[in-house]
Structures are given as structure tokens and as C-alpha cells.
């Protein structure tokens, strides 16, 4: 069973390498943000598989943390690409 989990980890690492190609090459900034979002998702898988391989349950809190940070990063980048600033100033005051 340990060999199976190591093999699964290696497959996820290879898919992260294939995503890094898109992160380097991607023609637009939006392509790079989409690739970073997918890399964050693959990193969550990697944390889950590592917590099985090393036989601890202390890493499992990192899963929620990475999910929340990846989502906030994607939203902030999309606001920046659409409007040019992330937090809009209120002009009515």
C-alpha cells in the first residue's frame, strides 16, 4: 500500500510539472493565473497524500488553508485584471 501512495504522489508531482509549463509559457496573465489556481489544487492533493505517507494527521489543517488562500488569490487577480485595482475606492463620501 505504501508503494501505491508513493506512486500517486509521483503522478501528482508530474502533473504539477506539466502545469508549470503553462505558467512559464502562457501568453496572457490570465493564463498564468489559471495555471496557478490549478497548481494550488494539485498542491492540496499533494498535502493529503503526504499526510497518508508520513502517517500523521497534523497536515490536514493545511488543506483548508490552501483552499481558502488559492480562492482569495484568484478573486484578487481577476479584480485586478478587470478593473485595474483590487479594492475600489468609494467616491460618494
Amino acid at each position: 500500500m505504501t508503494y501505491f501512495f508513493w506512486g500517486a504522489t509521483i503522478v501528482v508531482v508530474l502533473s504539477i510539472v506539466a502545469l508549470l509549463y503553462r505558467l512559464v509559457k502562457g501568453p496572457n496573465p490570465s493564463d498564468r493565473v489559471v495555471a496557478l489556481d490549478a497548481i494550488g489544487v494539485a498542491l492540496i492533493c499533494l498535502v493529503g497524500l503526504f499526510s497518508i505517507v508520513f502517517d500523521t494527521s497534523f497536515f490536514l489543517e493545511i488543506i483548508l488553508l490552501l483552499a481558502i488562500l488559492s480562492f482569495i488569490g484568484t478573486i484578487a487577480f481577476s479584480k485586478f485584471i478587470e478593473k485595474g485595482d483590487i479594492i475600489t475606492r468609494d467616491n460618494s463620501r
Binding site: N28, S30, V33, V34, D37, V41, I44, G48, L60, E61, I63, L64, A67, I68, S70, F71, T74, I75, F77, S78, K79, I81, E82
Partner: peptide
Amino acid sequence: SILLGVLFLFITGPVGGHIMSRSSYIA
């Protein structure tokens, strides 16, 4: 907490893809 992570990813993954493609279309 793993189940909570599954629920959070199920909600936020498609929302992130949608808002990214929409903002890059507007840009």
C-alpha cells in the same frame, strides 16, 4: 475538516474559473 475542505472546494472551484474567464473577456 477534510469533509469541510471538500465542500469548500466544491463551492469555490467553479466560481474561481467563472470569474477569471469573465474578467479576462471584459479585459
